Simulated scan of single mutants.
Amino acid sequence: MSAIAYLRRYWQLYALLVLPLTYFIIFKYGPMYGIQIAFKDFNFFQGIHRSEWIGFEAFREVFGMRDFYLTLRNTLMLNFLDLLVSFPAPLILAILLYELKAVWFKKLSQTILYIPHFISWVIIGGIVYQVFGTESGMVNNLLMSLGFEAVPFLTDKSDWLITYLLVGVWQSAGWGTIIYLAALTGINKELFEAAGIDGAGRLKRIWHITLPGLKPTIVVLLIINLGHMISIGFERPYVIGNLAVREYSDVLSTFVYRIGIESGQYTLATVVGLFQAVVGLIFVLGANYTSKKLTDESIL
């Protein structure tokens, strides 16, 4: 079949690609024009094209800032801890939900677990302060009424770190189970039946059938998560963080906000953004290459 005949036969499929391609061109590739701000002394009134070229001077200025390395450390630390705590949570939840026999209870549990994903981080931040606040939080009020001392969940660095991670699990774990549950439906149920006939218990079926069946999905999601190690969402550390724990809560996204939006140093903010993009790409390619060599699973 010639290329023209093929296009005529399946033109509807190519037509469906118009909207997503348009979206990527406008919102993903179009903004790449602004990358040159990192190499210019950007003036808001002169615009990108007319601003003066300064080469790598802004890079030297950013890499000479103490705050940059502090926020870089915090970004890597929080993302690494999130990977250890939040990454396995949806996998475990998905397996538990899959093993449930009562359909009504499974649907109810899924609904309850999904809800936090749709709540804004601003609202979640308000809930966190109402529940874990040192002076007025529900948990500390209960502890003090029982004769215990208040726990500084949001003002002590170690306690804040634990609170940050657990809130992240609560917000994201339920939604993350969707991908794993979809992958679980693709596993042949006859394998579970055959294993049961051979005397394999539930844990052995999970270990020898469920987990190997989820291996490609786990690898892909792990590679994607590793690609985000150098970037971090702005809302979560900004809303839950405060001056008392700024040594841990100040990350690259809040650093960009301070120097870009608050201080108007758009060139420096673009340098940090470009740094995150390049390092993130290196992380993805490195993780993909390592995974392909060790497990023969990859996304490229």
Rank of each mutant, 00 (worst) to 15 (best):
I112S: 03
S145H: 15
P152G: 01
G137V: 14
L91M: 12
E135K: 12
A102C: 06
Y98T: 00
I92W: 09
L93C: 01
A94Q: 05
W121G: 05
L154D: 02
E149K: 04
S109A: 15
F118C: 00
I124H: 04
G137E: 13
I95T: 03
T163S: 14
M144F: 06
I124D: 04
P116T: 02
G137N: 13
A102K: 15
L91N: 02
M138L: 15
I112L: 14
L97G: 07
V167Q: 11
A94G: 05
G137S: 14
V128W: 00
Y164Q: 03
S120R: 00
I112R: 02
L161I: 02
F87L: 13
L108A: 15
Y114W: 11
D159S: 11
Q110K: 07
L154G: 03
S158G: 03
F148S: 02
S145P: 13
P152Q: 01
S136D: 12
F87K: 11
A89D: 00
Y164R: 03
S145E: 15
Q130L: 14
D159A: 11
L91V: 14
Q110D: 05
N141Q: 14
W160A: 05
I119S: 00
V131R: 04
I162F: 14
V122G: 15
V151W: 06
P152Y: 01
K157H: 05
A89T: 00
I95K: 04
L96F: 12
I162G: 11
S158L: 09
E149F: 00
I112C: 05
S145Y: 13
V103F: 12
W160V: 08
Y164A: 08
I123T: 12
W160E: 07
T155N: 11
M144S: 14
L146C: 09
P88W: 10
G147T: 07
I112V: 14
W160I: 07
E99V: 10
S145A: 15
A150G: 07
L161A: 01
P88I: 10
I112M: 07
L97N: 08
S136M: 12
L166Y: 06
L100P: 12
T134K: 13
V139Y: 02
P88E: 06
T163P: 10
S136F: 13
A102F: 07
A102N: 15
L97Q: 07
N140C: 09
E135R: 12
L146V: 05
A102H: 12
V151S: 06
Y129M: 13
E99R: 07
L93M: 10
L165I: 08
W160T: 09
I92M: 11
L165E: 03
Q110V: 09
L108Q: 08
G147M: 09
K157N: 09
I123N: 07
S158C: 01
T134C: 02
I95D: 02
F87T: 14
I115E: 09
A94N: 06
L96S: 11
P152C: 01
W121D: 04
S158N: 13
P116M: 06
V131A: 08
P90M: 10
V103Q: 15
H117Q: 12
I95C: 03
G126V: 08
N141D: 13
I115Q: 10
F118S: 00
G147N: 06
L143V: 02
I162A: 14
Y98I: 00
